[in-house]
Amino acid sequence: MFKRAAVLVVSCGALFAGCGTDPHIENEEIISNLMEAGIPADDIMVVDGAVYVGRDAHVSLEASRELLQRGEGSEELYMTTNRVGTSVTKICVNPTATFNTYTRLSQGLDLALGNYNALGLRITFARGPTTGCTANITAQTMAGTGGSSGFPSGGRPYGTINIGTGLNSLSVDVNEHVVTHELGHTLGLRHTDFYDRSISCGGAPTNEGTAGVGAVLIPGTPTTATPGGSIMNSCYPPDTDGEFTSSDRTALNYLY
């Protein structure tokens, strides 16, 4: 998730390293799996030891292996071929101590959780630490004015969202937007304009392709993206209100 017209690769900031006893070997396998699945090499990047596709979506070793097992999805838009399983009913988002020192990031998190809970989905969100959690997501900081996260794997939401500390100097609505967007990825939502990032980001047209996780049209949602048409657009406008659009609500109600 980036501000419109930002320099995308630079905006990724300092992201955390991948897990495993030998991240270098793991990353080689992830990249190999992605390329075997047909992901263009120029849509894969390694930042601080972690493999990313679509600029802000981390791909784990498990997720890359699942991709080869299930084959490719369709090449339309909105969701990955992985979803959060029915055993997950309450997702607790646990901010780090550092995250909590940034007032607007913290406010944005609360508002983002409210966005999801207002929809009455089968999955609810809570700010942790708390009890009754069937899945947990850590909210931590990164450099810049964007964010990053990842897609579901093994029926679980992706376990981390990274939110840029530079957002603390922007409006609460922008913070709400970015946190809501990154949580959307953890549930399996793709960028609405994945097939042409220039729709929300400006610049030259860029197609993310299936990004190794599928790009499947959600019934009832538009087949084409528009500026401001979804909180899941690749880049956010400076005047965002941080709220879901009608298409976003349709997509989430269909999924969950």
Rank of each mutant, 00 (worst) to 15 (best):
L61T: 04
N136G: 09
E28C: 02
N33H: 04
T250S: 10
G71M: 05
I218L: 00
D42E: 04
C12G: 09
D193W: 09
A63Y: 08
Y254R: 04
A112Q: 03
Y158R: 06
G242S: 14
L252Y: 03
N233C: 09
R104G: 04
V53I: 12
T180W: 00
L105T: 10
L255S: 12
V47P: 11
T224H: 11
N117F: 04
R127E: 08
V93H: 04
T80E: 04
L217C: 11
A63V: 10
G212F: 14
Y254G: 08
D241Y: 00
T21G: 06
M142Q: 14
P205A: 04
I199P: 11
L187M: 09
F16S: 15
S11C: 07
Y256P: 08
G154D: 01
G54A: 09
S148A: 15
G20N: 04
Q140A: 13
P227T: 08
E208K: 14
G114V: 05
F125I: 13
S87R: 15
C19M: 14
H177Y: 02
S149L: 10
A139R: 11
G132E: 04
S87Q: 12
N115E: 15
C12T: 15
T224G: 00
R156C: 03
G155K: 01
E75M: 14
I25H: 08
A225K: 03
G229E: 11
V172I: 14
A225H: 10
A37N: 11
P227Q: 15
Y52S: 06
L61K: 14
N207H: 13
T186E: 11
S60R: 03
K3P: 10
L109T: 02
S64W: 07
G203V: 03
H191T: 08
F194L: 11
T130W: 04
L34S: 11
T226W: 05
R83D: 13
